[in-house]
Each structure stands twice: as C-alpha cells, then as structure tokens.
Deep mutational scan, measured.
Amino acid sequence: MGFKLLSKLLVYLTASIMAIASPLAFSVDSSGEYPTVSEIPVGEVRLYQIADGVWSHIATQSFDGAVYPSNGLIVRDGDELLLIDTAWGAKNTAALLAEIEKQIGLPVTRAVSTHFHDDRVGGVDVLRAAGVATYASPSTRRLAEVEGNEIPTHSLEGLSSSGDAVRFGPVELFYPGAAHSTDNLIVYVPSASVLYGGCAIYELSRTSAGNVADADLAEWPTSIERIQQHYPEAQFVIPGHGLPGGLDLLKHTTNVVKAHTNRSVVE
C-alpha cells in the first residue's frame, strides 16, 4: 500500500471513529477524501466538511520552486461564519470567499490569524475590503508590521502568557507558548472536538522541520505538551499544512522538532 493511500485511509478511519463516538456532533463529509496538494491548482481553494458547521479550507501556493498546501478553518456561528487564517495570499483568499459563498452561503463576518507569517495573514486586506472584521493577538499584529505583512485590524486580548485561553464565538483560542513562531495560536472547536494546530503542528508525513527561522526550538516541545494537557479530548487535529489526523500529530511534531534540534547540535 502506497504512503499517500495509507495517509488518506488514516484520515478516513479517524473521521469514521469520530462519527461513531459522537453521532450528534459529527456529520463528516462523505463526498470524498481530504484534498491534497496535487489536486488543488494554485489560485483555487477546496472546502472539506469535518463536522456539522465545521470545515477546513485548503489552498496551495508556490514557494521556492515548489507547491505547498495550506489549511485553515471555518466555523459556523449562528447565521454567520468565523474564518481562521487566510488562504495564503490575496488571490487565494478572494477564491476562498467565493467558494464559501458557493458552498455554504453564509457571510464571513470575523477572521482570526493564528500567527504573523504570510500563509496566515496574506489576504487580510481582501477580507477587510469584503467587510470582514480581522483579528490577531497584539504580538501577531506587531510582528506582521515588522515583517511588512498585512496586519489584522483588531487585537485579541488575554493571550499574552503561555497557557492563556479565551473564548471567541464558537471557538476557544489558546496560546501554548512559542513553537513554530513566538505568537502562534491554537484554535479548538469544543462542539466538535476539532483542534486546529496551525503551523505549530505537523502532518504525519512530514519528517523535516522546514521553516524554523522564527521558531523557538527549545520551547516548542513544552508548548505541545500544554496543548495535549489542555485538549486531551480532541479527536480531529488539523495541521497548518497537509493531512489531518488525531492527537498523534502532536507527538510526531515533537519528535521531528527534537530530531532537528539534535542534528543542529551535532553539526
């Protein structure tokens, strides 16, 4: 069995187990497998329904001669939608809004960016022009300005110390501490036991640490421990890039980060 097929099978099995364990909360999309990078042309966006009122959005972007996937989250909030992270750029984010209108038909009224990198804030200006209120932590807003990236308009308070959590509509926002970046936030959907790890969490097929220019490698494993301790009931975990899975993604990420750190020390 090929690795790609095995990865998709694991996603399907995880979703099936969740649907059985929580039949009222989960209505997993039966329309197909989780979209992969090879299936999404740059400039297009796919939506994948995880649970009743919960979707991931998947886009792709060219970077350094390669094409990478990027995940975000959409959560229903009454007759409105909360968006977590842009679709990595203005063109993708405009396509995301169009796809949401086509498939869901509810307005996106608020959006949260989970850290300051372009795959999370690139497209904020498109959201703002569409009347979406954009939010991020003060740290993310400051770092985005320093980096020359787009800056969300509103500040999220109460997320300055490791372990801080605040309720934001249908989700809980959690600051686990520094990891992929010093400002990275985690998003949890309690009604569906869905954990969105953003770039602080890796997919299972990833074996290298990737972009760690703004990471705190020493603190990252401790931050992941905080996530595990705060959300032990999480059933569906979405990484910032690639295929979702279960809580095993947290341990896998820790292993990859520690291996990278150990290699760096040896070198």
Results as ranks from 00 to 15, higher is better:
G2T: 09
G2K: 12
F3A: 07
F3I: 05
L5I: 15
L6M: 08
L6A: 09
L6V: 08
L6P: 06
S7A: 09
S7I: 15
K8V: 06
L10M: 09
V11P: 09
L13W: 07
L13N: 15
L13S: 07
L13Y: 15
T14C: 09
T14W: 04
A15F: 04
I17E: 04
M18N: 04
M18Y: 09
A19F: 15
I20T: 06
A21N: 10
A21V: 08
S27K: 12
V28N: 15
S30H: 15
S31L: 08
P35C: 15
T36P: 09
V37F: 08
V37E: 06
E39H: 05
V42R: 08
R46Q: 07
R46W: 07
L47M: 08
L47Y: 00
L47G: 01
Y48W: 06
Y48S: 06
Y48H: 11
Q49Y: 08
Q49D: 11
D52Y: 08
V54S: 04
W55N: 00
H57N: 04
H57A: 03
T60Q: 05
T60K: 11
T60I: 08
D64F: 12
D64E: 08
D64M: 09
G65D: 05
A66G: 06
Y68V: 07
P69G: 07
P69K: 07
S70Q: 03
S70H: 04
N71Y: 01
L73Y: 01
V75G: 01
R76P: 03
D77I: 07
D77A: 05
E80Q: 14
L81Y: 03
L81E: 02
D85Q: 00
T86V: 15
T86W: 01
G89Y: 04
G89Q: 07
K91S: 13
N92S: 14
A94Y: 13
L96A: 12
A98W: 13
A98R: 10
K102W: 15
Q103T: 14
G105H: 13
L106M: 14
L106A: 13
P107C: 03
V108D: 02
T109W: 15
T109F: 09
R110H: 04
A111I: 12
A111S: 10
S113Q: 15
T114E: 00
H117T: 00
R120F: 01
R120I: 01
R120E: 07
R120H: 03
G123L: 03
V126W: 08
V126Y: 15
R128I: 12
A129T: 05
A130F: 05
A130L: 08
A133S: 06
Y135W: 06
Y135P: 01
A136D: 02
S137N: 15
P138A: 08
P138L: 13
S139H: 15
S139K: 06
R141H: 04
L143G: 12
L143R: 10
V146E: 12
G148W: 13
G148Q: 07
N149C: 11
N149K: 09
E150Q: 13
E150L: 04
I151C: 08
P152H: 05
H154A: 09
H154N: 06
S155D: 05
S155V: 11
S155I: 06
L156K: 03
G158D: 15
G158E: 13
L159W: 04
S160Q: 12
S161H: 05
A165I: 09
R167Y: 05
R167E: 05
F168H: 06
G169H: 09
G169E: 09
P170S: 13
F174M: 15
F174Q: 08
Y175I: 01
P176L: 02
G177C: 01
A179S: 12
S181N: 00
D183P: 00
D183H: 02
L185R: 01
L185T: 15
I186Y: 03
V187A: 08
Y188A: 12
V189S: 10
P190F: 11
S191W: 05
S191Q: 07
S191P: 04
S191Y: 12
A192I: 14
A192E: 12
S193A: 10
Y196W: 06
G197A: 08
G197T: 11
A200M: 05
E203S: 14
L204Y: 08
A209F: 12
A209Y: 12
V212P: 10
A213N: 11
A213L: 10
A213P: 14
A213D: 14
D214V: 13
A215H: 10
D216I: 15
L217T: 05
L217G: 12
L217V: 14
E219Y: 04
W220G: 01
W220V: 01
S223P: 03
I224H: 00
I224Q: 01
I224K: 01
R226Q: 04
R226K: 04
H230A: 09
P232A: 09
P232G: 11
E233D: 12
A234N: 02
G240L: 02
G240Y: 00
H241I: 00
G242V: 03
G242A: 02
L243T: 14
G245A: 07
L250R: 00
L250Y: 05
K251H: 04
V256R: 14
V257H: 14
V257F: 05
A259F: 04
A259M: 05
N262K: 14
R263E: 06
R263M: 05
S264W: 15
V265R: 08
V266S: 12
